[in-house]
Design a binder for these strands. Structure first.
Lengths: 123, 123
DNA sequence: GTTATTTAAGTTGTGCACAATTTAATTTTA
DNA sequence: TAAAATTAAATTGTGCACAACTTAAATAAC
């Protein structure tokens, strides 16, 4: 579903998720990215490294707290936003659901995901 | 969510999916498994090999058509069915949804999945 | 001020998941 | 009957995803 669109942009689906977060808030930490996307650092570190190698982001250890790594968009990363803007509607169109049903489904998925992670964290 | 239950049985989630299919129909082909689970042979071949190494299944090339590999349960694989029978209810309980909502959600997921693969196959 | 605890990121190991390609077998076509 | 086309599984390459562990930095406790 996503792949033909993402191949055009030269990114993978998890990279697209990272960009979605960064397009909304320009700079974040690895920890915050992990919390937002439910991904742990074993997944994020190599993922972000590849994105940095592609020139989409820049990583830099925080001077305030050296345990933290700040992640920010490059100009190239910002520029992808426009090209990627057609993807949500294309996914909705391919889903076989109406726009309203699609939005409802996304909300339901997010709620279920949030709940599952809450339950997992309690164990 | 699944992992604590599956760790007890000594299997992974994709292996559990394969077993779900085999518990219903004792023997199948790699091709049919792939169609049922939307997994391609690059994923299935190593997955089934590990299951065979664990003694859960047996693989054998069909004498009728040597392109096909038949996959069947072993006694050990059959025995896991009983232990695994609590998993669906446990997942429903952990989902934060009622039993009815949970069933409805599964049906919705399956329909969406089927549709997405139909769309993908057309491309 | 020092030690213990907690936190954030990174590493290692393992199991997928899929695209593309290869190999071998079967079916179709001429 | 032989060649071409199609099919099924396997292999190769790459990108995750997560558990467990390690390292380094910051915070809490004494």
């Amino acid at each position: 579903m996503y792949r033909p669109y993402l191949d055009k942009l030269g990114i993978t689906y998890p990279q697209y998720l990272v960009l979605l977060v960064l397009w909304e808030q320009d700079e974040t930490t690895v920890k915050a990215l992990g919390a937002e996307l439910y991904l742990d650092s074993g997944t994020l570190t190599p993922l972000l490294k590849r994105m940095e190698d592609s020139g989409l982001i820049k990583r830099e250890r925080s001077k305030e707290d050296e345990r933290r790594v700040m992640v920010r968009l490059t100009t190239k990363g910002e520029e992808l936003k426009e090209e990627a803007s057609i993807i949500p509607d294309a996914m909705a169109a391919n889903s076989g659901l109406s726009k309203e049903e699609f939005k409802k489904a996304l909300t339901g998925f997010q709620q279920l995901l949030d709940h599952i992670h809450t339950v997992n964290d309690k164990k």
